[in-house]
């Protein structure tokens, strides 16, 4: 994997769910080299609690576990969230779950035993999806990796991290609404977001972009306008 790609992973959070302590320990300490934020759980219940709290971008889970198995866990996640990348870890004998997993729209399937190659394949898949330039609207392309906007394929506007994240979120909510609470949760992390801070942030961003793509819906939030 390319070094610059690896760097992208640093800021991403991952949740690892595996019931065998020895195996989970090894996986988690491996993941810690790639990610700053690694959460671990030993079954589906614990996993869902952590997922609900931290909303990790990637979930790596075993299928066969005591208590709540991986299948139920993934079902619960997919009820509300179709974005999070889900990587399933499974032993040979669990092929019977395959059908259900396909319908649950999981992103990657790893046959145990897990090794570096298999793990990298899965992570690369995430990165390729995550850093593909996004066509925000006509003439405006958002390059996530380089963190810049390209206008009419000539003018390059560099962005700050929060600005990039905001545009990305806005794109994900294309056709619907990006609410204030979500902005606060995703971009301000755990810090409190004041209306003033948000307003000045939006104002600055609008000033940078030659065309107006951010539309304000009073009392609610923002939406992408083309």
């Amino acid at each position: 994997m390319q070094e610059e790609l690896l760097k992208e992973l640093k800021d991403i959070s991952i949740l690892c769910v595996e019931d065998e302590d020895g195996i989970r320990e090894m996986i988690v300490s491996t993941l810690k080299y790639y990610f700053n934020e690694v959460y671990e759980a030993s079954d589906g219940y614990e996993g869902y609690e952590l997922y609900d709290y931290y909303k990790p971008k990637i979930v790596l889970t075993d299928i066969q576990m005591k208590n709540c198995n991986g299948l139920d866990f993934v079902k619960k996640i997919r009820e509300t969230d179709s974005e999070t990348m889900i990587i399933m870890l499974t032993a040979h004998s669990n092929e019977e779950y395959l059908m259900e997993l396909i319908n649950l729209n999981i992103n990657h399937f790893i046959l145990k035993p897990l090794n570096t190659k298999k793990l990298n394949e899965a992570l690369e898949k995430y990165l390729i999806k995550a850093i593909k330039p996004i066509l925000l609207c006509e003439d405006l392309i958002l390059d996530l990796q380089k963190r810049e906007l390209i206008y009419k394929s000539s003018e390059i506007i560099s962005l700050r991290k929060r600005e990039k994240d905001f545009l990305e979120l806005l794109y994900k909510k294309k056709g619907s609404l990006l609410k204030y609470e979500e902005i606060e949760f995703q971009l301000w992390n755990d810090k409190e977001m004041t209306t003033h801070a948000l307003k000045s942030f939006i104002k600055e961003l609008r000033h940078k972009i030659p065309i107006n793509v951010i539309k304000n819906i009073p009392q609610e939030g923002y939406t992408l306008q083309c």
Partner: peptide, 23 residues
């Protein structure tokens, strides 16, 4: 054998990654 095999593979994976990150 499945469990120890997985664990062995995990140990190797961890070692490989650590080497890669020069840690």
């Amino acid at each position: 054998w499945r469990q120890p095999l997985s664990q062995l593979s995990g140990i190797l994976m961890e070692l490989e990654t650590a080497t890669r990150f020069k840690k």
